[in-house]
Design a protein around this nucleic acid. Structure first.
Length: 778
DNA sequence: CAGTGAGCGAGCTTCCGCTTGACTT
């Protein structure tokens, strides 16, 4: 073999191999091959913060293969990305594979096109050790912060918590937003709108100011009843709208959330699929750049579909902090591919990407905006109508606007002095709105603005803060609120009371008790790390290191000397109470203190203290309860469970709340209590009804058993029929039944075959430990 | 995916950024 090229991604390797021909073998490193020691601190603080690297356990087999291939090649081309991480990957490869300078070349390209790659081969360079050092500084700093801060949380708040430069700031954003919302005082005002009939069209107009009270609104409407209305002014002005730049990771996540209702995680999984199928360029990027090849293809498509007038070549520059632009923007690999095979979600995401990339090279849309002011004979205020007409659709050609909308934004011709008559004027009570809670996508947007996290970490970070139980998706439906509406029609003002739902946090990111308490603790004791500008500031240092102007070990030593003493002093600090603990009062029965805090397994109420002769009693908080506002009465109520309801068929029935919610226990049978009942209030009769319903369901559960196969049952589960297998002393396992088989008709042989096939199915990989990151993200 | 239903403790936990498959609880 003459040449070995190593890139980061296997999909990329496949493509490049096609461009390079027979003399080149292309392999992939699958990202980093080496990292700081996984379990230990991994940094020799005494010896200049020397990193202690190990080959990542799941990369050992791969490294062996790479070594072998490298030893047989005349020349090894390190073609990892040009950003900081990519440079470090090249350096680690160089070190681990034992490469020689004279037979090693470092090459880079920012787009996977044949000319770009051939040009890269023509222009090799050496590994940029300054840039590598910037990466080592970044890596070591993150390890120091994460591995010194997290244990403080274990000691002071709860085991297995975590803190880090990125995740802790993400949690802070969510906590502070929640506090703003809690502190927000909503104020009512009245919004006035009128319907004018012009020709055969009804046109809506809004008053140019809000009215602050019902009295003011009523007085206004009374005046209107006696007033005449006329057009005071008609203004028209041309407006241009420009297309958005092509997608980066963060804008793709935002748009897919908004238009396709996808989670950040789901978007990335689908994009990965498209990338692996060769349909789109790399999906983890902060670059807005499009290759010349792509620009040419887009131009061809636009001209063919719409004509020259619609083409407008644009070059976009990224504004996001810390962008490293190692790749292209996200775009279709082939613009000529308009429809793809795949699931509906894959197709929709592809369409989104296609449209955005193509539209980014199209002409502005030109609009004519009309602004009409209508005066009221006996009032100062004016009604305003706005209309919009498309003069030239430009890139709108790809984002069709419905005819209805076009119709509704077109105003009939009007001229100054023209008299108008309102058919109806209404004043609706509105309320000023608290700031919106973050969604996954809006949090990513904010993180990108602050320069926190990278395209490859947005989705994992959002998973981490949820799996650590700092943040959860809201489940509150909101509450009903009345609002008034005054309507002037046929000279009479009538009042009606309407209702709306407000305050829902469904699907939004809401901090948990643990999240709030950890955030309060960290912002108080480690304000520098939690500062929104911390990352931006150290990024400047990393840039200086990459330029060769600063030494990375000096900079880390400098940081450590400020950071580490804080850790030492907080550890030495003897906190009288646990962080976040509140004393609620005394238990009237025992006279002992009642407190609430974050316990070993989450928020708990406690009666008594650990120093008492008797052990303290504990009860977990229930869904919807919070350490910050639970009352003594509510806390004491938690100790009423488990509650005995009486007996049925000579056995006791108990109600309680378990890991999976409220339930009633009857002998060895557990039945979940539905949402409309509570364990505190459920009656004996209601519990018996639940037990009987469960018995009935259980009776229908068993579809079939086999004498020849002890422990095997065909059961009817929540998600349809399945094969269950329980052997005494062994773990139970379930098996799928293919859709085309009738579960009742399955024979012993068929069941055996299904079980054997599925036992063998997960092809045993070489003993691999799943990384901690992955298992926690679950 | 398919059931489940403590305990307040021994040892363990943890970071960010690059990459993909592997999980079968």
């Amino acid at each position: 073999m003459k040449n070995l090229v190593i890139v980061e991604s296997p999909a990329k390797a496949k493509t490049i191999e096609k461009f390079l021909g027979k003399d080149f073998k292309v392999m992939s490193s699958y990202g980093h091959i080496r990292d700081l020691h996984n379990k230990e601190f991994g940094i020799d603080v005494e010896k200049g913060f020397n990193p202690i690297y190990e080959i990542s356990p799941d990369k050992e087999a791969l490294v062996k293969q790479l070594k072998q291939a490298a030893s047989q090649a005349d020349m090894v081309w390190l073609a990892s990305d040009e950003d900081r991480e990519g440079e470090a990957i090249a350096w680690h490869l160089y070190e681990v594979l034992g490469l020689k300078p004279e037979t090693t070349r470092r090459i880079v390209f920012h787009e996977i096109t044949k000319p770009a790659i051939l040009q890269a081969i023509e222009n090799p360079r050496e590994i940029d050790i300054n840039r590598v050092n910037a990466q080592q500084a970044r890596r070591v700093l993150d390890r120091i912060v994460g591995f010194e801060l997290s244990p403080v949380l274990w000691r002071k708040i709860k085991p297995a918590l975590s803190a880090g430069r990125v995740q802790s700031v993400a949690v802070r954003l969510i906590c502070e937003r929640e506090e703003e919302i809690r502190g927000f005082k909503s104020e009512a005002y009245y919004r006035i709108s009128a319907l004018f009939t012009i020709g055969d069209k009804q046109v809506k107009a809004e008053l140019d100011r809000r009215l602050e009270s019902e009295e003011a609104a009523a007085a206004f409407l009374e005046d209107c009843a006696k007033a005449t209305f006329s057009v005071a002014e008609v203004n028209e002005r041309p407006v241009k709208r420009s297309p958005a730049p092509p997608f980066t990771t963060s804008t793709l996540q935002q748009d897919a959330a908004r238009k396709l209702n996808l989670t950040v995680n789901r978007t990335m999984m689908l994009a990965q699929k498209l990338y692996e199928a060769g349909l789109i360029t790399y999906m983890r990027t902060d670059s807005l750049n499009l290759s010349n090849l792509a620009l040419g293809e887009i131009s061809k498509a636009v001209t063919a579909d719409f004509g020259d007038k619609y083409l407008h070549r644009r070059h976009y520059h990224t504004k996001s902090k810390g962008a490293q632009e190692a790749h292209e923007a996200i775009r279709p690999t082939y613009i000529s591919t308009r429809e793809i095979e795949g699931t509906p979600q894959e197709q929709n995401l592809y369409k989104l990407i296609w449209r955005r990339a193509v539209a980014s090279q199209m002409a502005d849309a030109e609009l004519l905006k009309t602004h009409v002011e209508i005066s009221i004979s006996n009032r100062e205020e004016k009604f305003i109508m706005t209309g919009e007409q498309i003069v030239f659709d430009g890139f709108f050609a790809l984002y069709p606007i419905s005819e209805e909308r076009m119709e509704s934004t077109m105003l009939p011709p009007m001229s100054s002095g023209m008299a108008l008559a309102p058919s109806e004027i209404s004043a609706v009570e509105r309320f000023s709105q608290a700031p919106a809670r973050y969604t996954e996508a809006s949090l990513v947007k904010k993180m990108e603005e602050l320069g926190i996290g990278r395209p490859s970490t947005y989705a994992p970070t959002i998973s981490t803060i949820q799996s650590r139980d700092y943040v959860a998706k809201g489940e509150k439906e909101g509450t009903k609120r009345d609002y008034d509406q005054l309507t002037l029609k046929n000279g009479k003002v009538t009042k009606s009371v309407l209702t709306e739902t407000t305050g829902s946090d469904k699907g939004k990111l809401v901090p948990t008790d643990v999240g709030m308490i950890v955030n309060k603790f960290l912002t108080e004791y480690f304000p520098d790390i939690l500062d929104y500008n911390f990352t931006a500031r150290i990024e400047e240092k990393f840039d200086e290191i990459a330029e060769g102007n600063l030494g990375w070990q000096n900079e880390i030593a400098d940081f450590y000397s400020g950071f580490h003493p804080g850790i030492e002093s907080i550890n030495a600090l003897r906190l009288e109470h646990k962080v976040g603990e509140r004393i609620l009062g005394t238990d009237p029965e025992s006279g002992k203190p009642v407190s609430v805090k974050i316990g070993r397994f989450g928020p708990v109420v406690q009666i008594g203290e650990a120093t008492d002769e008797e052990k303290p009693r504990f009860a977990s908080l229930q869904k919807g309860q919070s350490v910050s506002d639970i009352t003594l009465e509510e806390a004491l109520k938690l100790f009423e469970l488990p509650r005995s309801l009486g007996s049925f068929e000579d056995k006791e029935i108990q109600a309680n709340v378990g890991r999976f919610g409220p339930y009633v226990k009857f002998g060895s049978m557990y039945v979940s209590i539905p949402a409309d009942l509570t364990p505190q209030e459920i009656t004996l009769d209601e519990a018996i009804a639940l037990i009987e319903a469960k018995r009935k369901a259980d009776a229908q559960k068993l579809i079939k058993e086999f004498e020849e196969l002890p422990g095997v049952q065909i059961l009817n589960g929540r998600y349809g029929p399945y094969i269950a297998f329980k052997e005494t002393g062994k773990k139970a396992r379930n098996y799928k039944i293919p859709k085309d088989k009738e579960p009742e008709a399955l024979t012993v042989e068929e069941v055996k075959a299904l079980m054997e096939a599925q036992d063998a199915a997960p092809a045993k990989p070489k003993a691999r430990k799943t990384s901690t990151r992955k298992s926690t993200a679950k």
